[in-house]
Computed example of a mutant assay.
Amino acid sequence: MSELRIRAASPADLDSVLAFWRTAAEGASISDDREGVERLVARDPGALLLAEADGELVGTVIAGFDGWRCHLYRLAVRPGHRRRGIGSALLAAAEERFVRLGGRRADAMVLTGNERAHHAWRAAGYAPQEAWRRWVKSLTP
Rank of each mutant, 00 (worst) to 15 (best):
W132V: 09
A12K: 09
S29G: 12
R100G: 09
T140I: 00
W132E: 11
L49V: 03
L139E: 08
V61T: 09
L75Q: 02
Y126P: 12
P45L: 05
R104D: 02
A76E: 04
A123T: 10
E96V: 08
L50R: 08
R7G: 11
S2K: 10
A93T: 12
V110C: 08
R84Y: 01
R133P: 02
R97Q: 13
G27N: 08
R69P: 01
E56Q: 08
A24E: 03
W135N: 03
N114S: 08
G27H: 07
E96C: 10
Y73V: 06
G55A: 07
G64R: 12
P141M: 09
V17F: 03
A123P: 10
F65Q: 01
T140D: 09
V110P: 04
R5M: 15
G87M: 06
A89P: 06
E52V: 10
F65Y: 10
A25C: 07
A28P: 02
A42R: 06
R69N: 07
F65N: 06
G103A: 06
A19Q: 13
S2R: 11
G87P: 03
D15M: 10
W21V: 05
A124I: 14
R69S: 11
C70E: 14
V77K: 00
R78N: 03
A89Q: 11
I62A: 01
R116G: 05
L72H: 04
Y126M: 13
D13F: 09
T60D: 00
E26T: 12
R34C: 05
G85V: 06
R105I: 08
G64T: 11
V61C: 10
M109Y: 04
A25W: 07
S31K: 14
E115N: 01
E35Y: 01
A124M: 14
L90F: 04
L75R: 00
A92V: 06
L40D: 11
S88N: 11
F20Y: 00
E96Y: 02
A28E: 09
D13T: 09
V37E: 14
L91H: 05
R97K: 13
T140L: 03
A93R: 15
G125V: 01
A8S: 15
R83N: 13
G80A: 11
G113H: 14
P45G: 07
A120E: 08
P141S: 15
W68P: 00
W21D: 02
L57C: 04
A120F: 03
N114G: 04
E56G: 00
T60N: 00
L49K: 02
E26F: 13
L90D: 02
G125N: 05
H71Q: 12
L57A: 04
V37N: 06
G46Y: 07
V41G: 07
E35M: 05
P45E: 05
D107Y: 15
E26R: 13
